[in-house]
Simulated scan of single mutants.
Amino acid sequence: MIEVGSREWLRATLALSLGSFLVFLNLYQTHPLLPMLASRFSISSLYSSWTLAGCTAGLAFALLVCARLADRFGRRRVMLWTLAGAIALSLIASLVEQFESLVVLRILQGMLLAGLPATAIAYMGEEFNRRALISAVGIYIAANSLGGIAGRVLGGLLAGWFDSWHATFLGIGIISVLLFPLVVWLLPVQRNFTPTQASPGQLRLALGSHLRNPLLVGAYFIGGLNFLVFLNQFSYLTFLLSAEPFALPPQWLGMLFLTYLSGTLASSISGRCAQRIGAEQLLLVGIALMALGGVLLLGQTLAFILGGLLVSSFGFFLAHACASAWVGQHVEHNRALASSLYLVAYYLGASLGGFYLHPFWERGQLPGLVLGIELVLLVTAGLSLWLARQKAHRDQPLAI
């Protein structure tokens, strides 16, 4: 097994982190463009969000398929081929003119982007020892946030500089093409992978086993619900900040997502924090920080909004890193499937959050948005307490 600090650990962690960076670079490139797309195509804020929600939905629904393909053909092969296809679709999207065509391409791109997230944690779980896995997951998720930041910031800058959303897809596609060969070169071939051919009913049995495990189901709900409100608060805030009195152009809306940098920090230290205070406690701390960040948004000035997003980002990625590692530590079989189920819940939350928050936004604007966020965080805080009790009950020795 690969150990922390070894040459193989460095290569594999860097390759997976760079690949993850490219996934989220491409996934979130339309996030700061939503007001521009709504204006250019004369559509509503909810409809324009389908360029993001459609991509995350495609990713969510393809995760299980990619996980099963990875079980049969290998993690490395699935990760590399799907990532190459997703990058090609960014270049193709720069050529389309119809909004419906753009949404279709984004859904297909999301399906291909699922390949790496569906299998990366399983790759680490098979190749790394426990300590190496915990450390690598934190770095890997930090790369997720960096990719999300870069996609949004570059997406906004390119659209603002060239006054065209086409420039965003072209520029990010070119950057991805240049970086992809480095992922191929760095990622080691697996040594501990054993191909498996799914027999009839095997997937159903494996799914049933994971979905009957409360230690996994609790983490799935927490990850999905937290992301439901965290991601989509940014979507509605771009519309708030693009209107008067702020009137920020796309390049400045992209800069809004630099607040994710606090999440990058949180992900990178999550492993050490979990070892010190316990994963259950750290999960609750992350949710509490998200709730505090939501309250700060009510200041309704740019300074309060940025401060609230910094706090919320730190809390969200702390909780996300903790929940992701939790799944890896509490599963003994079908690791790729277990990790994929977490990500299915996670990205379904991303896709559905716009619909959930829309009535809060329409009726109450920013205060309504914050109310919708806090209601969900009350639920996930309760789930985290329930999860801790389930683990304590399972770990309790049987009386003789």
Rank of each mutant, 00 (worst) to 15 (best):
residue 388 A to I: 03
residue 204 R to K: 14
residue 164 S to D: 05
residue 32 P to G: 02
residue 357 L to E: 06
residue 338 A to M: 01
residue 20 S to Y: 11
residue 288 A to M: 14
residue 191 R to W: 00
residue 295 V to L: 15
residue 121 I to E: 03
residue 69 L to S: 11
residue 317 F to N: 15
residue 308 G to V: 12
residue 366 L to C: 05
residue 285 V to Q: 12
residue 365 Q to A: 13
residue 358 H to K: 13
residue 139 I to E: 02
residue 393 H to N: 13
residue 175 I to Y: 00
residue 400 I to H: 12
residue 16 L to P: 00
residue 240 L to D: 03
residue 91 L to D: 06
residue 311 V to T: 12
residue 291 A to L: 04
residue 360 F to A: 01
residue 144 N to F: 10
residue 225 L to P: 04
residue 31 H to Q: 15
residue 360 F to M: 01
residue 214 P to N: 11
residue 359 P to N: 08
residue 151 G to K: 03
residue 174 I to N: 02
residue 349 G to C: 03
residue 299 G to F: 03
residue 126 E to G: 13
residue 17 S to C: 10
residue 199 S to P: 00
residue 140 Y to V: 04
residue 226 N to V: 10
residue 56 T to N: 03
residue 332 E to L: 11
residue 294 G to C: 07
residue 268 S to C: 00
residue 400 I to G: 13
residue 169 F to K: 00
residue 336 A to G: 05
residue 249 P to M: 04
residue 374 E to D: 09
residue 323 A to W: 07
residue 313 S to Q: 09
residue 13 T to F: 07
residue 400 I to L: 13
residue 110 G to L: 12
residue 153 V to K: 00
residue 370 V to Q: 01
residue 53 A to G: 09
residue 164 S to T: 05
residue 225 L to S: 08
residue 233 Q to I: 12
residue 343 L to R: 02
residue 6 S to Q: 08
residue 369 L to D: 04
residue 14 L to N: 07
residue 285 V to D: 08
residue 359 P to C: 05
residue 104 V to T: 15
residue 397 P to I: 05
residue 395 D to C: 10
residue 38 A to N: 06
residue 63 L to W: 08
residue 335 R to Y: 13
residue 70 A to G: 15
residue 31 H to W: 03
residue 51 T to D: 01
residue 211 L to C: 10
residue 336 A to Y: 00
residue 110 G to N: 06
residue 19 G to E: 07
residue 384 S to W: 09
residue 216 L to F: 10
residue 128 F to W: 09
residue 384 S to K: 07
residue 27 L to H: 01
residue 164 S to N: 04
residue 62 A to R: 08
residue 131 R to L: 13
residue 115 G to R: 12
residue 299 G to I: 05
residue 400 I to D: 11
residue 272 R to A: 13
residue 320 H to P: 04
residue 32 P to E: 00
residue 178 L to Y: 02
residue 234 F to N: 10
residue 382 G to Y: 11
residue 321 A to T: 15
residue 92 I to D: 06
residue 273 C to R: 10
residue 3 E to Y: 09
residue 159 A to Q: 01
residue 315 G to C: 07
residue 64 L to A: 02
residue 112 L to A: 08
residue 106 R to K: 09
residue 211 L to P: 05
residue 344 V to G: 02
residue 344 V to W: 02
residue 305 I to S: 10
residue 92 I to V: 15
residue 130 R to H: 14
residue 41 F to G: 02
residue 120 A to D: 01
residue 286 G to W: 08
residue 227 F to Q: 07
residue 354 G to N: 13
